[in-house]
Nucleic acid binder design. Structure first.
Lengths: 242, 242
DNA sequence: TAGTGGTCTAGACCACACG
DNA sequence: GTGTGGTCTAGACCACTAT
């Protein structure tokens, strides 16, 4: 549906690199070659390559060319943070979702600070556990501003809330800030998770913004220590000093 | 020294937004305005704005304009991961570095797996602790391929190794992969850190690549649980599906 | 309708790598 | 030298937001 040329080229090559069809280290056609091959201008080719580069699929070397990186093997960087849950699913492990709560409530004190709404606002609270390989190891506590998300059901919460937000409500998620830290496990953590002997949890706070920059969702993801992992791929950007 | 126009505009605006001179929510001049103002083409203006957008300084809305985001207050996203140490330094806290070891050794078994060198290679090993507010809370274990980094001294290790690599050795760091997890504290951790009662540490494994894609450095950063924090700013990129 | 950002073109010159 | 990627230009058309 998206007819953007540079996105098509991006998807073309990202899939071929991720599937291994294009092996790591392989040299890609030059920008001029691609320009001729696709019958488009060079700047458009460069836009596609830049996306591939940002997301860790290729690496460009001035004077030499563009080369496929070794995604796919065990290293799936794929732009930014990748959680344990996503990693598990990529390896083919299924995660089950247990919905504990889906309710419309006045915003809790502790959450108001994060969501930056006024204190009389109401939110949809969703509390879910992720069951991976038979153990509940992640507790997700989501809070949505109810002036933006008017309705949530347990059914939606057990599937993909994001698909619902984007496709049904037509909300455009735009950017997010994550803060990762380690904290004492709460009694709630002990009740709702299979915490075993662990006394701490990794807490990932996620602040999600819409296209118009409004902060509409706050999520607290609480992971059992041994089942926590994050992978980050970072490229040195031109803007960086030193 | 870098005469790139788009970088100049990027630095111009990134500084003015970070300093607060341009308040969050303020509308920036339109691309056409900037084109006239700087006397350059629009694509160049857009390149600068795209960098600002990627790094969390601004947000662009089609049909409306570009708007400054609220960096600066307490939220300093600033592109990718930001560690507790960097955060502390930005708030003005000083961190001291204690160098335990700087030695040229055959590559340890456990490290060879990460550095992907042959087993007979030698590496420079640097072991340092970071002292923040009177406590040793981070243990950094660095390994550099000695065919690329021929010499390291304790003096270099107590300053900025990266400045040395880039300015003295002229090495170009290009991209890196980080893997974050939580593991049992080792006896070494107990010896070299002020671990208090904590039985686990956050381990950040960092794989650093050069311009020519060779993996030349592996670092294990071991953080005391309560002094660990990472912040990540992520923008929804065009390449992402669903 | 006018203004905004998003995409794309067809050129140009440069700095770097390699034989 | 030739070929590569990096920067930049001066246009063009589109989709979206406002009024």
């Amino acid at each position: 549906m998206n007819t953007n040329i540079f996105l098509q080229i991006y998807h073309d090559y990202s899939e071929r690199i991720q599937s291994g069809e294009i092996a790591a280290g392989t040299k890609l056609p030059s920008e001029n070659d691609l320009t001729r091959e696709y019958g488009i201008s060079r700047e458009t080719v460069r836009k596609a390559l830049q996306l591939l580069s940002e997301n860790g699929f290729i690496h460009k070397i001035k004077g030499k060319g563009s080369f496929a990186l070794d995604i796919g093997r065990m290293n799936f960087p794929l732009s930014g943070l990748v959680s344990f849950k996503e990693m598990s699913e990529r390896i083919g492990r299924k995660s089950q979702t247990i919905v504990y709560k889906t309710e419309h409530i006045p915003i809790p004190h502790a959450v108001a600070r994060h969501l930056e709404t006024d204190k009389h606002a109401t939110v949809w609270q969703v509390i879910r556990a992720r069951n991976i390989e038979g153990e509940k190891v992640i507790l997700d506590k989501d809070y949505f501003r109810s002036d933006i998300v008017p309705l949530l059901t347990t059914e939606i919460a057990s599937g993909s809330i994001y698909a619902y937000l984007e496709q049904e409500l037509n909300l455009q998620i735009s950017y997010a800030k994550k803060v990762i830290s380690v904290e004492d496990a709460t009694t709630e953590d002990y009740e709702l998770l299979d915490l075993k002997e662990y006394t701490h949890v990794v807490v990932v706070r996620n602040y999600v913004h819409l296209e118009d920059t409004t902060l509409f969702q706050y999520t607290e993801s609480r992971h059992r220590l041994d089942k926590f992992q994050f992978v980050d791929f970072a490229r040195r950007s031109p803007g960086e000093e030193k």
